[in-house]
Design a binder for these strands. Structure first.
Lengths: 203, 203
DNA sequence: ATCTACATCAATACTATTTCTTGATATAGT
DNA sequence: ACTATATCAAGAAATAGTATTGATGTAGAT
């Protein structure tokens, strides 16, 4: 397999993703292949560190990232997980070119396809279809964020955990409970007790 | 503690380091505080990746970095370790602004203070004393590099290991043997046998 | 005032990952 | 042939990460 084939194989999941939203023509596919770069992050590695400007828009090919805020007490609050075929970046920092107050790091070894701010602008210019694609994609993220907020203001931890299990079935078994707890906004101990209750109820 | 105090506390080890070489006046200290940025790298995280231009000069506050070359076979050869109060960067790449053929990554969670190429030039211009400081500091690195080379062309693996133990007593217990082996240019297995021999000889 | 939904702390248990050791066998240079 | 070293594979040991449990505490709702 030569260099081009390898690159194509790495980019394929992203092309598939776009194609499913809105079919691409060959020129658009070529553009994507040019402008997105594959990159491997290893477990625990930072993708974005507080204080830096978020310069990449990330599409996850495999693995899992988390975006979180560290509060004054030093506690971590996970805003979002992103696994296969999800997008993640600090959109605020990315668009306004201002230092990020959030961190992104890898919960597993993670392969992403990333496009820089500059290249994304150039993509929009050269192929306006991507304006639409990225609008759709951000709307999707927006909706799931809204649901999460709603959940948070209206439900107990137990209900939130249940919803999490239903919405992200795979993640709920794949990720360490500590991470899920931090996502739900409870302590790992309490989550452990909730799960215990679940198990007992079933038997 | 407010933001400025925090920053000052983080920068202090570097100010102390400079002060010990050549005392700084208040303006110079202020410059250092402005131009060096603290940054945390996590274990295994890249500080510099082959192909990128080395844009930072790093002072290690705590933790440990390694700089290494990956050869055609994919084997790793460690050129330098750098722990507390040492400097590390790919000077060739840094000065000539050309892609690095070496990698730097973190063996432990590591806090560095780093100055960008641009800011270092500006530091030299604004406070020429730093020309002297950085000359001295590079001379020190140069000397230890020379000694290492001499060792390598003139000694057996066993002798090299002994010298390593004497020169970097702490590192020789702190770092995994795999890393030390790669630094000495032998296999971890062989290092294990050398150590075994040492232990037996003592008893 | 007490009940519910959570938190905190500490100890322990469990699991996975990393690191080290050992034996067997091979090779290149003196 | 001997010495210094490598390679490969298996297993042991050490460390780090994750989960569970008990005891105790607290704020807000009823």
């Amino acid at each position: 397999m030569n260099r081009d084939d390898l690159l194509l194989k790495q980019i394929q999941p992203l092309l598939d993703y776009f194609d499913q939203l809105i079919p691409l023509n060959i020129d658009e596919k070529l553009l994507v292949t040019e402008l997105f770069k594959p990159r491997l992050y290893r477990k625990r590695q930072y993708v974005l560190q507080e204080g830096d400007i978020c310069n990449q828009f990330n599409f996850i090919v495999r693995g899992c990232l988390r975006m979180y805020k560290v509060d004054d007490k030093g506690d971590i609050h996970i805003i979002q997980f992103a696994a296969e075929n999800w997008w993640l970046s600090n959109i605020g920092s990315f668009h306004d070119r201002k230092p990020s107050d959030l961190n992104i790091d890898a919960l597993e070894d993670t392969m992403v396809l990333q496009i820089s701010h500059e290249n994304l602008l150039s993509l929009y210019t050269k192929a306006p279809k991507f304006d639409r694609i990225f609008r759709v994609l951000i709307e999707k993220s927006f909706v799931s964020l809204q649901q999460r907020l709603l959940q948070n203001i209206s439900s107990t931890a137990e209900e939130r955990y249940l919803t999490f299990q239903q919405t992200y079935t795979e993640l709920s078994t794949r990720l360490p409970q500590t991470q899920i707890a931090s996502f739900l906004g409870i302590t790992p101990e309490f989550l452990s007790r909730l799960r215990n209750k679940q198990v007992k109820r079933k038997s």
